[in-house]
Lab assay of single mutants.
Amino acid sequence: GIDPFTGEAIAKFNFNGDTQVEMSFRKGERITLLRQVDENWYEGRIPGTSRQGIFPITYVDVIKRPL
């Protein structure tokens, strides 16, 4: 089901994660935001896939912030 505490964002740019914990994505992908890790990073996942990880806040347009 849908978790009411998650947020939502759209990727503004392609992001290629450097490490296992970073999640790569392509511009235009819809991302579920799980939490804000710190002032620069979100943790999120791509709905319908097993992809999950952290990524820079500046790479996405936030539609709804996670609670």
Rank of each mutant, 00 (worst) to 15 (best):
V60R: 00
I63Q: 06
R45I: 10
E39G: 11
R30K: 10
N40Q: 12
T58H: 12
V37R: 05
V62Q: 04
I46Y: 01
S24D: 06
D3V: 14
G44A: 02
Q52D: 03
S24Q: 05
F55R: 00
A9T: 03
M23S: 01
T19V: 08
R51N: 03
F5Y: 13
R65D: 15
L34M: 09
V62F: 07
E43Q: 08
I57G: 09
K12W: 04
G44H: 00
D18E: 15
Q52A: 09
K64H: 07
I10W: 06
V37A: 04
V37Q: 04
F15L: 02
G44T: 01
R30E: 05
D3P: 11
A11P: 01
T19N: 12
I54K: 07
F55Q: 00
I2M: 13
P47E: 14
S24W: 06
L34A: 03
K64T: 08
F15Y: 13
G7A: 07
T49N: 03
G7C: 15
D38G: 11
G28D: 06
S50K: 12
G44N: 00
F25G: 00
V21K: 14
G28C: 08
Y59I: 05
A11V: 02
F55N: 00
G53V: 01
N16Q: 12
P66V: 06
R51Y: 03
I57Q: 07
P56R: 04
I31Q: 00
N14G: 06
A11T: 03
S50A: 11
N16P: 06
T19R: 14
G28P: 01
F55T: 00
F13T: 09
G7S: 09
F55D: 00
E8C: 15
L33K: 02
T58C: 15
V62D: 02
F13V: 09
D18I: 14
I57S: 09
F5L: 13
I46D: 00
G28N: 06
I10E: 05
D18M: 14
V37I: 14
P56S: 02
T49V: 03
Q20D: 14
Y59D: 03
S50M: 12
Y59A: 11
Q52P: 01
M23T: 01
V37K: 05
Q20T: 12
K27E: 09
F15R: 04
I10A: 03
K27S: 08
D18F: 13
G44D: 00
R26F: 11
T49E: 06
W41P: 00
G1A: 12
D18Q: 15
N14E: 09
R65V: 14
G44F: 01
N16D: 14
A9D: 00
A9E: 00
V62C: 05
I46G: 01
R65L: 15
P56C: 04
M23Q: 01
E22W: 06
I63D: 04
T6I: 11
F55V: 08
G7N: 09
P66E: 08
M23R: 00
G53C: 02
W41G: 02
Q20E: 15
G44R: 00
F55E: 00
P4V: 13
P47I: 09
N16L: 11
I10V: 12
G48E: 07
T58Q: 13
